[in-house]
Design a binder for these strands. Structure first.
Lengths: 202, 202
DNA sequence: TTTATGTTTCGTTGATGATCGAAGTGTCAA
DNA sequence: TTGACACTTCGATCATCAACGAAACATAAA
């Protein structure tokens, strides 16, 4: 199995805790120097160097030399997506022990655009608020907009009837790995995000 | 890093060649017994048993006992998606040595529904055909439907103007890992697939 | 130049884990 | 009951690889 070996190679690179930590660290930031990554993973610079060179050889990271620093970043969006897709399968809700959460993790969670649709704390919060005010209702795997919801969206100059024409991608529930909660994606989510960005709410 | 450890655990499970082979084998089929998986991975039943129990413990697979057989299957669509997302990052196009391709691989590639949108050989072939007849034109990251294309779709009772109302998810290019080619996804792709399934073309 | 800092290479150690033989349990068929 | 088959558990072997100390290299500031 040619393909399986390729997959195994990539997965093995991500399957080592120190490397996984560095990769996740790079999910949030744009690029980080080797020393910073080493300290985040609690390993010595030598060990980090070894890991990083493997990640580069495996095409998961790219390097850029600036003076005596070497800045590492994810090689592509696909790598980021792959890491997220693994996070989604991770163990079920960790039994709510929110006490003193990791600060870096918060940064990642906060207002992450998630490439195409809304995600992260903002999106989840907005979605929950919309649900509580009964502007949005869950319906199987997607959301329905209520009458009062239509009006609310209209105030934001978002025509839900217009978007709805294509029912399929209208307002899907989308599992956000960092919050492990559902939020809206699809056409409605994108329209909402665009609008909020225009209004500079975010 | 709580999250990173979770990711590492999942990735480590996928990062062992024998396990990866079994997972990929399950991507195509619905469910397979332990012995079959063992032979596909070229390992003894004992070793396979060990791997499979780890995959079940890691929530990547589920088991179902039928008589003296145990049928394993992917635990969820998310697991399938994660495996695919890893395959996408795999080494660049393997330099076209199509001679005598693995038979099982072909089976996976053929007419794979890819959960939500069209994928696999059929979808790629259809998409390319549509492009060649100039029913479809690439435009950045999405596709545009030409005038002659509109008519062709209308014959299939697919109203492109209707779908187009929501421009965003209308007809995205979607990279299929098994073919490493772009094909259509989004509203148009789904509508086309539904129609073809109804007409029993597939 | 000297000194400090960022990073790599080398060599060794130690732990983890894949593998299979041997032996066991459970299920089906004769 | 007696086999045959599907699968698991146990135990031992063996290879892989993460980790760091030591040393080297490279760049930048003193």
């Amino acid at each position: 199995m040619e393909v399986a070996d390729d997959i195994a190679e990539i997965a093995a690179l991500m399957g080592e805790p120190s490397r996984a930590t560095m990769l996740v660290a790079l999910l949030g930031k744009e690029a980080l120097p080797a020393t910073e990554l080493a300290s985040q993973a609690f390993i010595s610079p030598q060990t980090a160097s070894s890991h990083l060179s493997k990640l580069v050889a495996g095409r998961l990271l790219t390097v850029e030399q600036h003076g005596r620093h070497r800045y590492y970043r994810l090689a592509s969006d696909e790598v980021g997506r792959a890491i997220e897709s693994l996070a989604i399968i991770a163990p079920p809700p960790p039994a709510a022990h929110n006490t003193q959460e990791d600060e870096r993790l918060k940064t990642v969670r906060y207002a992450r655009t998630c490439y195409d649709h809304m995600a992260g704390k903002v999106a989840v919060a907005i979605t929950r608020a919309l649900e509580q005010r009964e502007f949005l209702m869950r319906s199987g795997r997607s959301y329905e907009v209520t009458e009062s919801g239509k009006e609310w969206f209209r105030n934001l100059r978002i025509d839900t009837d217009d978007l709805r024409t294509n029912r399929r991608a209208f307002a899907l529930q989308c599992l956000d790995w960092s919050e492990r909660q559902y939020h809206i994606s699809g056409a409605l989510g994108t329209a909402l995000l665009d609008r909020l960005l225009n209004l500079k709410y975010i």
